[in-house]
């Protein structure tokens, strides 16, 4: 009897079936607590159903004069719908291959930036999220070195296609999901 006991200790092999039960129970309890209690406590902070339900809006764009923009609130963020002049478009297209285009992965050419989700292209209508890609401020229109947008917070300059050209922002202004549902009506989201 003493011999077997000594043997078990020497080998360092104290694992018994009871230990398996302990570990199994603890694991089960930990997983159950994580999924049943901890996750609900975290996930409650994520967007609620009513917030998610406000995902799309329809906007009448017939009243935007050429060369101006409207700002709409979509999902709590500003959206710019800009009625661009021929000059704006020409300037943006001429800069399609400019060396200071920092973000070449996010719809870099002007032609790509005016296509809706269904593939309709209307170069005079530019739809942008009015959220600076640096830290989220709303850029000001018709300002900055490229006559597009200028962010007052940390000095990012965007061109007439909403592409980042200068300043700390890492990416072009985002184009939200949108489509033309009538000639002068778009659905955002």
């Amino acid at each position: 009897m003493a011999e077997t006991h000594a043997h078990a200790t020497e080998a360092g092999d104290d694992t018994t079936r009871r230990d398996i039960l302990y570990i199994g129970t603890a694991t089960f309890a930990a997983v159950g607590l994580a999924r049943g209690v901890v996750w609900p406590l975290i996930h409650q902070m994520n967007p609620a159903e009513n917030v998610k339900a406000l995902a799309s809006i329809e906007v009448d764009i017939s009243q935007i004069p050429v060369g101006q923009q409207i700002k709409i609130l979509w999902q709590g963020k500003a959206v710019f719908v800009r009625h661009r002049t021929a000059n704006d478009i020409a300037k943006a297209r001429a800069d399609d291959t400019a060396a200071d285009l920092k973000d070449t992965s996010n719809r870099p050419t002007d032609a790509e930036r005016v296509v809706d989700d269904k593939g309709t292209s209307r170069p005079e209508i530019l739809v942008l999220l009015g959220v600076c890609t640096h830290l989220g401020c709303v850029p000001l229109a018709d300002r900055g070195d490229y006559d597009g947008w200028f962010c007052p917070c940390h000095g990012s300059h965007y061109d007439t296609a909403g592409r980042i050209r200068k300043g700390p922002a890492p990416a072009n202004l985002v184009i939200p999901p949108y489509e033309f549902i009538e000639e002068f009506k778009i659905k955002i989201g």
Partner: peptide, 29 residues
Amino acid sequence: VITNFFDAIPWVGGSIKTLLLGGPAVAEP
């Protein structure tokens, strides 16, 4: 601006930001 700091974190930043804000932007939640 402060919650956008978290956006700078690669991969998980966007989810953390949404979790902090409780929506796509600063609002009632």
